[in-house]
Design a protein around this nucleic acid. Structure first.
Lengths: 357, 357
DNA sequence: CTGTTAGCGCCTTCAC
DNA sequence: GTGAAGGCGCTAACAG
């Protein structure tokens, strides 16, 4: 039992396949009568042309590749969903890979996408985690593919492409400023692997805030993790056991915040009674439950939309110049911290009521 | 600047494309010397054959379609990630659609997948939400595609295909039994749309437990929602304002549990001081934070793995008979409820230490 | 308006 | 071992 093809239709309709192809693609160029006849037969056989053949013939593909780490992380999950909703609306076909933050998988995924001759690419690289040679391979592949590409959330070092990024430096900087303004001098920080640019940026912001305020950055208060809750919890336990326990803590992504909060719970410490805390990234459940959680949100929907906008623009106009979009941090603070932040002009003013992304 | 093709390689190597094709696919059939020469040229040009052309020629595709609602829901996010990790290991290419629980989008997604001539399909239908005619279309499409298909999590009514399902009836039944065994007679329930089979199953379990214990099912305590936290919260507020407030509540999926917990927080009610609660589905964050949350987990990883196993089996052996796998509920209860459950032989015995999926 | 022809890039017989 | 030829299903000129 074979799939019916354009030939079968043509034969049965007593026309050439060119005509069938025409009613399929440029219906108006075909005599109404023959068109209807062909259409009828198509319907009868429930025929629908093969995209594979069509793509080959057109040497163009309406397929776009998506390469992200940790699909099941709420951050990327939301991004992915936003992306596929857009691809859907634009009649693009999303092919999706998860790298698990493994640079080798970046390369493998890009290989497949290259062989698939996708027409575009949204890419959240984990290559920074990997060896230099892997990064080089990935860049090479991107070049080889020669298709519109938009980086999202993370950079590829020394690589000139469009991208949508979160201003992690600003987030780290302002978060720390706020804590300092609230009277803290002893501020701990749990961040991700400093091999990752985004982790470094956030920590740099933390440092800058200290310098600007004439405060020393105490090495003992800087904890380099890996953006997982497990590691963050271990580090946080350590931090909270310090003889001079920090009065405030900055945690640099959603899972890190969770790890920290877990450690906090174990020690029976309460926010803000015993310690102050600002996290980076929203945590949906806390929102749902209206739980207190001072944090800086990076709008996932906004990022994904911006990325797709850039991608579509590039697909439509291939010689568009690379363009970077920076997504501004959004502050979600309790009344007290917000007052402090506004008073010190660290944030513009209350953003309450801003729709959750 | 054109992509290099098999022809370019053949020409440069001074051989025919047949030979190049051979070194690509059946290297051993080619003289070592020529093979190496061809290989060198391939490397030099960084040539890699087009999967599109190859698929067309082979009239077979290593592509598999994935259609799920709500990619950003942690439940499906985890499933998706597990699936793509497996497709990756099996050299399959995942094409992924999100339907947002919109039956029309089910149909649209299946259409694209059909045109793509995917080699297999993992499908979590939302068609039950839709009109009968839409369901019919979806079934028709599945038939037209004629490729191995595995349903996951949700049924398509009257449709004979392989599938991996959670035993929601059993979950609802045993959860309710436990609450009854714990001394409750006034048990509220918040469920999803009863148009959905999985919602009905869970509620049926709740009913069965009541019957079996000679307890009446009070209609006022049955709240039909839609599996979203917003609706669940509204309904829960209502429930908690009842003159005869239930002493225990069953909530039938993760978001519903969240909605309920939010309403609970608003009323300053505490578990288990004021009310008892069992939810269906895990909520990762609660796990991470070691928060108290009595629930019945449906193992997402297990489901996804089972689904892929069925799919691969079917792909390898096309006349394998349809097969259904039922994933057993896993109970995660606090000490008191667990003791009650074990004592009444509702659950076998402590499952503590079971790895989180 | 419609049919013929010639690919798209690759694979697989078949001869040699 | 290798090349020539034909075909996968479809589209895009080019003639009529």
């Amino acid at each position: 039992m074979k799939k019916t093809t354009i030939n079968d239709i043509a034969k049965e309709a007593g026309v050439s396949k060119a005509t069938v192809s025409r009613v399929l693609n440029h219906g108006e160029l075909v005599d109404e009568e023959t068109r209807n006849r062909v259409l009828d037969i198509i319907q009868k056989h429930r025929y629908s042309p093969s995209l594979v053949a069509r793509n080959l013939s057109n040497r163009a593909s309406n397929t776009i590749g998506i390469v992200i780490p940790e699909i099941d992380n709420a951050f990327y999950g939301k991004i992915l969903r936003t992306i596929v909703n857009i691809t859907d609306a634009e009649d693009l076909i999303p092919v999706c890979f998860d790298t698990g933050n493994n640079a080798e998988k970046d390369v493998r995924s890009l290989c497949v996408l290259r062989d698939l001759r996708v027409g575009g690419l949204i890419y959240a690289p984990s290559v920074e985690y990997g060896a230099a040679c892997v990064t080089k391979q990935a860049k090479q592949l991107l070049d080889d593919m020669g298709v519109p590409t938009v980086l999202i959330d993370r950079h590829v070092p020394d690589f000139q492409r469009s991208g949508v990024f979160f201003d992690g430096f600003d987030a780290g900087y302002r978060a720390t400023k706020i804590l300092i303004a609230a009277g803290h001098v002893n501020i701990g920080v749990v961040t991700g692997s400093l091999k990752l640019g985004i982790a470094r940026a956030r920590l740099d912001g933390y440092r800058k805030a200290h310098e600007e305020c004439g405060l020393p950055v105490r090495r003992a208060l800087v904890f380099e993790g890996d953006f997982t809750s497990e590691t963050a919890c271990l580090l946080s336990r350590e931090m909270l056991s310090l003889p001079e326990r920090p009065g405030a803590v900055l945690t640099c992504n959603n899972d890190t915040s969770l790890g920290f909060l877990q450690a906090l719970g174990e020690k029976k410490l309460k926010i803000p009674r015993d310690i102050e805390h600002v996290g980076i990234d929203e945590i949906d459940v806390f929102d749902d439950l209206h739980m207190r959680y001072n944090h800086i949100a990076r709008s996932r929907v906004e990022m994904a939309q911006a990325a797709m906008a850039l991608l579509l623009a590039q697909i439509r106009n291939p010689d568009a110049r690379p363009e970077n979009v920076w997504i501004a941090p959004r502050f979600v603070l309790d009344a007290r911290l917000e007052r402090v932040a506004v008073k010190h002009k660290i944030i513009a003013k209350t953003q309450k009521g801003a729709s959750r992304p």
